[in-house]
């Protein structure tokens, strides 16, 4: 792949998904575009990029962006966020949202494991929210991921990462060589398409936002914009959960870290007033 082609794909990704692709990611580009080129019946990555550049076909552009987004996820990933939900977030919101409902947003939910982990956790212990109903919304930029998330169909490999066997037995049924999460869990989660770099999110207001290991792909200004828009979707007293290595500090004034809780942030009150 020549540097012009690399620059073309890098710009495409930045414009469409906010993803920053630096020169050292050439290997990543090649390893992910090669299967797409094969699928399209093209002899090489160079041919694939040539076709994208010359025809500007929306379907193919969307697929290039799709394969270049990272979809790594697993059930109950990192444990800490779920502990924070149980110990800090739900007890507070069960009080604050009494008589109303709690809305949870899994931003960049990939194939749905995070959203379904929350659904199973709530189902296992209905006292967590003190009877306050919960609505879970998962969004992603990738149609392919959203389709899999909606089906709730996982490979044998996926159901063995982070998921205790008792939960597999309780919530899944075997379908050929895949495992499908129960209809009841699927009904607890709604999946919608949302590109986080879009200027507006038509998703309503949330009390809890999971946005883990996503900001890391964006450049500085984009991180700030996305966090600002997320803050705009949040109710007063809302919580933001970031990935283990991520922070809002130095990027956005809209959030402040929760004390002694790694990866957990509270919507700053001045941010609510400003909104």
């Amino acid at each position: 792949m020549n540097s012009q082609d690399f620059e073309f794909v890098a710009q495409l990704l930045r414009k469409r998904a906010g993803i920053v692709l630096t020169g050292d990611k050439m290997y990543l580009l090649e390893s992910r575009l090669a299967p797409l080129a094969r699928k399209e019946g093209l002899p090489s990555i160079d041919d694939l990029i040539h076709v994208v550049r010359s025809r500007r076909e929306e379907r193919l552009i969307a697929q290039v962006v799709d394969v270049m987004t990272t979809n790594e996820t697993y059930f109950f990933r990192d444990k800490t966020p779920f502990l924070n939900l149980r110990e800090a977030i739900f007890p507070q919101l069960a009080q604050a949202r009494r008589g109303s409902r709690i809305r949870i947003w899994c931003a960049a939910c990939s194939t749905g494991q995070e959203a379904y982990s929350i659904a199973m956790m709530l189902d296992q212990d209905t006292s967590l929210t003190g009877g306050v109903p919960v609505e879970i919304v998962g969004t992603d930029i990738s149609d392919r991921c959203l389709e899999r998330a909606r089906q709730g169909l996982f490979t044998q490999f996926e159901v063995q990462r982070g998921l205790p066997i008792q939960m597999l037995m309780h919530y899944f049924t075997q379908q050929d060589d895949h495992w499908r999460i129960s209809e009841r869990m699927r009904q607890m989660v709604t999946f919608k398409k949302q590109n986080l770099i879009d200027a507006q999110y038509g998703l309503g207001q949330f009390d809890i936002v999971f946005c883990r290991n996503v900001l890391t792909y964006f450049d500085g200004p984009t991180k700030g914009d996305v966090l600002g828009r997320i803050a705009g979707t949040m109710n007063s007293g809302g919580f933001l959960i970031l990935g283990a290595t991520e922070t809002t500090s130095g990027i956005s004034q809209a959030f402040e870290p929760a004390q002694d809780r790694r990866g957990l942030y509270k919507l700053a009150e001045r941010s609510v007033q400003a909104a």
């Binding site: 044998q156 490999f157 063995q160 990462r161 205790p164 066997i165 008792q166 597999l168 037995m169 049924t173 075997q174």
Partner: peptide, 26 residues
């Protein structure tokens, strides 16, 4: 890797269950 084997194992006192093929992550 079917549910009846998993259930029998757990009833018989197993603590967890891995379906082959496995890797270090699992």
């Amino acid at each position: 890797n079917d549910m009846s084997h998993i259930a029998e194992a757990m009833r018989s006192g197993a603590n967890e269950y891995i379906m082959k093929p496995f890797d270090s992550e699992i």
